Simulated scan of single mutants.
Amino acid sequence: MLPARFLRPRTLVRHAASMSTSFPKHFLSTDQLNAEQFQGLLDTAAAFKKAKINTDLLVGETLLMIFQKRSTRTRISTEIGMQRLGGRALFLSSDDIQLGVNESLKDSAHVMSRFGSALLARVYGHSSVMELAKEASVPVINALSDKYHPLQALADYLTIQEHFGSAKGLTMCWVGDGNNVLHDYMLAAPLVGANIRIATPDGYGPAPDVVVKAQKLAKAAGTSVFLTSDPVEAVKGANVIATDTWVSMGQEEESKKRVDDFDGYQVTNKMLEHAASDHIFLHCLPRHKEEVDDEVFYGKRSKVWDEAENRMWTVMAVLAKLLEKK
């Protein structure tokens, strides 16, 4: 029989995240999950947060964290989250290991699989995380690639669930770049029964294949995906308005052009006059003033600090599910 200290966390994971179909070995993008699995992770995270879980559920497990791209929230949330679950996390920057440079991705994946229980990778190209998943014998978690950012989508939708009780029937709105965060955002919307309205400047829209996937999921769920280049049109009636940086890491040389191209996309209270009266604002951080003004960012409808905290509870749910002891 399990010691008493194990029972409650295990019950939370298995009850809240019970799945009718097999959960994927790796967590690389939101479209790997069905609605039940995505909601299960949200419910597990919510239960962990409510209970302020500190447990030895993952005692003896080690997470190897590969960071080609730096991050405040990803590192802090994952290291502390793994600690709260009883395991340990080892941070590996590009100065510690030169992933795919001095040693191939394939060889790195095989070596690290012998030491860690799981790999978490924050990389530039999505092909890197795909190759790690192909070659690793342990679970791989995508902590950000140029195409997807599934952990951020989980944190955002947990924040929405906390505020509204459920995302079902809500209208989400994205104003800004058609980037990796948006990709998972729009793939997740149909899974929770939400509509999504997206405004991006011409030439900065989401990847066509992701749009097709999102539209297919929306059709099956009875929800909608609306794309436009007019931010005011996108904001109309929205319950949740989200944006992100216009210049991602690695795009610094494009900074001036991007800021010019995104003129008129700054989220302001004037823009939000067109949103639903109960709307909230989200930004995954770090934030720059050209993306959203101070009045909105620090305003009473902003949930950015809840959103940042929820990065920890949601990555804990993912870790607990991928590494749960049968």
Rank of each mutant, 00 (worst) to 15 (best):
A109S: 07
R88M: 10
N102V: 04
G100Y: 09
L92E: 09
R114L: 05
S104A: 03
L105E: 01
R88L: 11
L99D: 04
N102A: 07
S108W: 05
G87E: 13
L92A: 15
G81V: 11
E79V: 11
G86H: 03
S104T: 15
S117R: 10
L105H: 00
N102Y: 01
R84M: 14
F91W: 13
F91G: 09
G86Q: 05
G87W: 10
S104E: 00
S94D: 14
G116H: 02
S104P: 06
M112A: 08
D96K: 01
R114A: 12
T78P: 03
L90W: 09
S108G: 10
D96F: 08
S104Q: 02
D95N: 09
S104F: 03
K106V: 12
D107P: 01
S113W: 04
R84C: 12
D107F: 00
S94V: 07
G100C: 00
D96I: 06
Q98F: 02
G81Q: 10
S94C: 02
D107E: 15
L85G: 07
L90H: 08
G81T: 12
V111T: 13
L105R: 00
S93L: 07
S94N: 13
M112N: 08
K106G: 01
M82V: 00
I80L: 15
A89V: 03
V111M: 13
D96H: 12
S113G: 14
H110S: 12
L105W: 02
I80V: 15
L92C: 15
G81L: 04
R84V: 12
L99N: 09
Q98E: 00
L92R: 09
G116D: 00
L85K: 06
L85F: 08
S94Y: 04
G116E: 01
G87L: 13
M112T: 00
F115R: 00
S94R: 05
D107V: 04
K106Y: 11
I97N: 05
A89P: 06
